[in-house]
Nucleic acid binder design. Structure first.
Ligand SMILES: [Mn+2]
Ligand SMILES: [Mn+2]
Ligand SMILES: [Mn+2]
Ligand SMILES: [Mn+2]
Lengths: 219, 219
DNA sequence: TTTATTTTTTAGGCTAACCTAAAAAAATTA
DNA sequence: TAATTTTTTTAGGTTAGCCTAAAAAATAAA
């Protein structure tokens, strides 16, 4: 078994999130940006991860995850999301309070712990933000969700996920009633600034392009 | 607020455990032994902890915890023991499987998390090994327990704690039925090798000096 | 296709936490 | 008290993960 450090795990997770369908290579700068570090530091780490066969790295051409790297990343994401469910379902945290804590808890390394936790939580399928939880074999099925910004006029759907996990954003959603499970209908798209006018149960409200891009809908 | 690293926290906890009633100074070598490291490394760290006002350190004279250091240590012990209760009560771990995992979990830093966990667990007073859990204000009341090795012939009492947390030891206790809550009576003390003959419900068994020293009794 | 800009890598340094070997102080023994 | 042993500290090095500044490669603009 390859053993990975706290820092290495964060790099793997960042690379995973930056290449969702593993479509194309992730750039050094993109990783630096995501991890709030410097490009030179990223290059150092990429060499190390390549030595461990966790990424495919060719100088100046960015990186992709190897099979091992991808499985490692999915394992960390599994832990992250299960801990988030625990915090919300069992300890009464709000969905906007759990992300930072899960960033630490995800590095606790015990298969028995995480499998027991999963059972204790009743094998949840998604985390508090609607993100799918990989199973213990590392199988992750991404649901097909579209951001509000890509919906058409008069199209309806259920809020089923968010792209952004910050407290600031989730708090705003909470306050405006844009929570998971809510049915929304697009009434109008303002071409000028990309904002969207949506209808909920009773009310109608306008959200900015930035907000519309980060709310995910099952249509 | 003073922020402490993973490693610093382990040093503080080790010093705390080595000077229970803060009676006397803890030696460099004792700390090295407890943390499986070298005396030279300990000296390095002692200087750092002294700079942070967490210990009183005089060259060649060992260390004691300051008020801050003691409170920090108790905070970590609180987390350690609450996580152990969680693992046993909620995730069905055995009492001999939780210590190592708690060594990691105790460094997760969130007052809200640990206070919520405590409430979720129903404010337990002791952990799975009978050790008392400090309250959120850092008050820790040690029960008065005596090791079997210090009991007199015909004296009885209830097994209420263990000094050693290793899987090997706890497993042995489990197998011989020497678990928390069990009533025991000392039948005989063998002066030759310090072993002790004890009576349980039905059976009578002999335990070695080493075992007798590590089982704690409320008399 | 040269020139300029951007991205990435290399070079050289820093800090935390460790190590071994040697020096210094304290404690023991003779 | 002097000699020996044990404990502790200092000196000097290592590694992981980070940094800045400079060099090299890739990309875009002229
Ligand atoms: Mn999250
Ligand atoms: Mn989440
Ligand atoms: Mn323990
Ligand atoms: Mn315990």
């Amino acid at each position: 078994m390859i053993t990975t450090s706290f820092t290495e795990e964060n790099y793997l997770k960042a690379i995973f999130h930056l290449s969702p369908q593993e479509a194309e290579a992730v750039s050094t700068n993109a990783i630096a940006e995501a991890l709030q570090t410097k490009a030179a530091s990223v290059t150092d780490m990429l060499k190390k991860l390549a030595d461990k066969n966790l990424i495919n790295y060719v100088k100046y051409q960015g990186v992709t995850l190897t099979h091992n790297g991808r499985q490692a990343a999915i394992g960390i994401i599994r832990k992250h999301r299960l801990w988030e469910v625990f915090l919300v379902d069992k300890l009464n945290f709000k969905w906007d309070e759990v992300h930072e804590l899960a960033e630490d808890l995800e590095h606790i390394n015990s298969a028995k712990l995480i499998d027991s936790l999963e059972a204790f939580l009743g094998f949840p399928k998604v985390d508090p933000h609607g993100d799918p939880i990989p199973d213990k074999n590392g199988v992750l099925k991404e649901p097909i969700l579209v951001p509000v910004s890509k919906m058409n006029i008069n199209q309806t759907g259920i809020i089923s996920g968010v792209k952004e996990h910050s407290t600031l954003f989730l708090n705003y959603l909470e306050k405006t009633g844009l929570v998971l499970g809510k049915r929304v209908k697009v009434q109008d798209l303002i071409e000028f600034d990309g904002s969207v006018i949506i209808a909920l149960d009773k009310q109608v409200l306008t959200i900015s392009r930035d907000v519309a891009k980060n709310i995910l809908i099952a249509v």
